[in-house]
Amino acid sequence: MDESQLQKRAQEQPQPVRTGKPTAEADLRASDADRDRIADILREALAEGRLDSSEHSERLDQVYAAKTMGELEPLVRDLPVGRTTAPAPAPAARGGYHYAPDPSGENPNLVGILGGAERKGRWRVGHRITAVAIMGGVEIDLTEATFTSPELVIHCTAIMGGVSVKLPENVTLRGGGVVGIMGGSDVKAFEAPDADAPVVRIDGFAFWGGVEAKAKRGKKVKDWTKKNLES
């Protein structure tokens, strides 16, 4: 094969497809870490009095519903964000609560299909739990857990089954995020006396099933102390 034939074959090879302009940052899909970063900024703003509780709750709902970065950034555009964007080398402490770094906590996926699944006892819970109950049940007991993140989201799916969540009585519980179709939720929402207490948010879906969350009398959230860090 001579040189002219080699050049002709090279020209016939498929060329890379050009996709045009790169995706704008605002159009990028948001990750769980992005949502958590914005949620941290909002919690700081609440603690400093820059937002009241209703504004904080409304914006937090929008954070966890956001799909893109362009939906997240406007939620903190009017807030100072410099201090919260950089990770702190030590555990964050606010009020009477001390939180460990996120990686130290568990973010379990609990699945009960034609059976049951549970997580209880003394354990370190992270920032997210996913519970799926299909013709079965899932029990989540946080009454003896150590909270390693200021906010915990429990995403529930109950199809002809049920998800039950038990909590310490001095954390904040927020519900209203469970969609019920021939099913429903019984989330007994309450606000902790301390604004810096951990926040537990319940959301998800119930079809011919149910989601229940309530506090257990006499159980208090465990503080994350230096002793815990060294254990």
Rank of each mutant, 00 (worst) to 15 (best):
E230C: 10
E25V: 00
I202G: 01
V199S: 05
S57W: 10
A131F: 09
D52I: 00
L42E: 03
R50V: 02
T23M: 08
I159T: 10
D102L: 04
H127D: 14
Q62D: 15
A189Q: 14
A10G: 06
D78E: 15
A88S: 15
S53E: 12
K219I: 00
A86T: 15
D203M: 04
V178N: 07
Q15M: 05
R119F: 09
T68E: 13
T146K: 03
G121F: 03
K222N: 09
S57T: 07
S53C: 02
R217D: 08
R35H: 14
N109V: 04
T172L: 03
A197M: 05
H155C: 05
R94P: 00
K120I: 00
D61A: 09
W123L: 02
V17E: 04
A92L: 05
A197Y: 07
M160C: 05
R128C: 14
D186C: 03
V165C: 02
A86D: 13
P87F: 01
E106I: 00
A86R: 15
T23Q: 12
V81W: 11
A215F: 11
M135K: 11
P91Y: 05
V211A: 03
R174Y: 07
A88I: 06
G184W: 12
D40N: 15
G137M: 07
F190P: 00
V81R: 12
K222T: 13
K166I: 05
K188D: 15
A24L: 04
Q7I: 05
Q15Y: 07
G126I: 13
V81K: 02
E118R: 14
A192T: 04
K67Y: 01
E73P: 08
G137Q: 06
E139A: 14
D194G: 00
R124C: 09
N109H: 11
R35G: 12
A215P: 15
N228D: 09
P150V: 05
G218Q: 06
G95W: 04
D141V: 01
R29P: 11
V211F: 01
Y64G: 05
V63C: 08
R29H: 10
A145E: 15
R217F: 00
L42K: 12
A145H: 08
S149E: 10
A93Y: 01
P168N: 01
W224G: 06
G115W: 05
G116T: 06
K219M: 10
T157G: 06
E191H: 03
A39W: 07
V153P: 00
E118N: 10
V165A: 03
A26Y: 07
A93W: 01
M135L: 03
V211P: 14
L60K: 12
Q7R: 15
L28F: 07
T225S: 13
T157S: 10
T225D: 14
A131E: 13
A88C: 03
E230V: 11
G126M: 10
S104L: 14
P103S: 11
K226S: 11
G162S: 09
G82D: 15
K216Y: 08
R124G: 06
R50P: 03
T148K: 07
L114Q: 13
L79D: 11
V200L: 01
C156S: 10
G116P: 00
P87A: 08
D203E: 14
P168H: 04
K67E: 06
Q15W: 06
K222S: 05
E151M: 13
E12Q: 14
